[in-house]
Amino acid sequence: MLTEAQLRAVVGRRASAAILRKVAASGDILARFDLARSHRLAQFLAQIAYESARFRTTTEYASGAAYEGREDLGNTEKGDGVRFKGHGLIQTTGRYNHRRQTAWLRANGFPGCPDFEVEPDKASDFPWALLGAVWYWQSRGLSAYADRGDIEMITRRINGGLNGYQDRIDLYVRFALVILGYELTKGAIKRFQQAAGLVADDIAGPKTRAELHRQLEALPPLMAAEPVQETDMSAAKDIIYPKPSPVRQTSKAHGAAGGGIFGTVLTPMLIGLGVKFGLLPAAFGDPDVQQTLTVVVTALSAWIGTYIAPKNAE
């Protein structure tokens, strides 16, 4: 399973740390239901990431009033729309679906799970938030579509249409690249295309997605490839930059505190002001770019602070 850091690299810095931790620790559950195979995992994570606002919530933001009276969802009693709004990572919606989720989980090894028709809010709590997504995936036979790389049909079966389709594709591509060992720096798609012998246009079109699928299928379950070793370093933008190493522990308060304050507080603020007043390119306003710069500056500041701190700072 992907690590918390890898998940955040895909979905962005605004994701809930609590949700990321739970998803990163879900390898056993996903393996149990045959979702640990790399090509299925990429599709599954892309869909639940989209439905949960990139792992920011396990409860639908809207009130649910729009579902009131929806008999197709089993909302036949007054207040059912709000009561049975979206819960869990895949946003299980409606009285019928909450009832079916309960029955499926109890029949598949979780006899003590809550009755979600009686307590629908509990479907937003882990592990049920994840298991609800597994139930939905399994009950709709979505692995069959994942096995042929058909993200359109997966989206239709989950959404009923193609809402957010491009975002789902983008998330799938990002998850696939990370599982295959690519860093999500600028030009990652192009680097993958070059390595695969495809036209290197840096656009994840059908042929690129088909090749991603083919390579994912070749990986063993729950295994992420080692970082790709680039051989063509002719262009700086094509280099896969290594992940910043964790800041080494130090007892020198000046080094640790200085790096933390400057990196995590001042860096984002200064970048934001620079973009606002036109002193920095607009690209620096991208959250993923800011996150990377903040990590690097934090590590560098702490390292410098460690060596310039007075000896009596021990």
Rank of each mutant, 00 (worst) to 15 (best):
G27K: 14
D125W: 11
F84W: 02
G88C: 10
H87V: 01
Y96H: 05
A62Y: 14
T102Y: 04
A62S: 15
L105N: 03
E71Y: 06
R32D: 08
C113D: 06
K85Q: 03
A66G: 04
E71W: 03
A24E: 08
S38W: 01
F33T: 09
R106Q: 12
D125A: 14
E77F: 07
V118E: 14
G86T: 02
T93S: 00
H98K: 00
D125P: 00
C113H: 09
F44I: 11
G27P: 04
Q91W: 05
A49I: 14
G109Y: 07
E68D: 14
E117P: 02
D28V: 15
P127G: 12
A25M: 02
V82A: 07
R100H: 05
G86L: 04
I29R: 12
T102C: 04
D115G: 06
L41T: 08
Y50H: 15
R95P: 01
G86Y: 02
D34A: 15
G112H: 12
A42T: 11
P120G: 05
R99Y: 08
T76C: 09
P120H: 06
R99F: 05
L30I: 08
I48F: 07
Q91I: 04
F44M: 10
S52M: 14
T59C: 08
H39R: 11
N108P: 13
Y61M: 15
L45E: 13
K85E: 02
L30P: 03
T102M: 02
T92P: 01
E77D: 12
A65M: 12
E77I: 08
F55G: 09
S52A: 15
N108A: 11
E60N: 05
P111A: 00
V118F: 03
L35C: 10
G64C: 11
A36I: 07
T59V: 15
R54N: 14
S52W: 13
I29E: 13
D80T: 07
A103Q: 11
D34C: 11
S63C: 07
R37P: 04
R70F: 02
D72Q: 01
F116C: 02
G94L: 00
A46Y: 13
R95F: 01
A25N: 11
H98V: 00
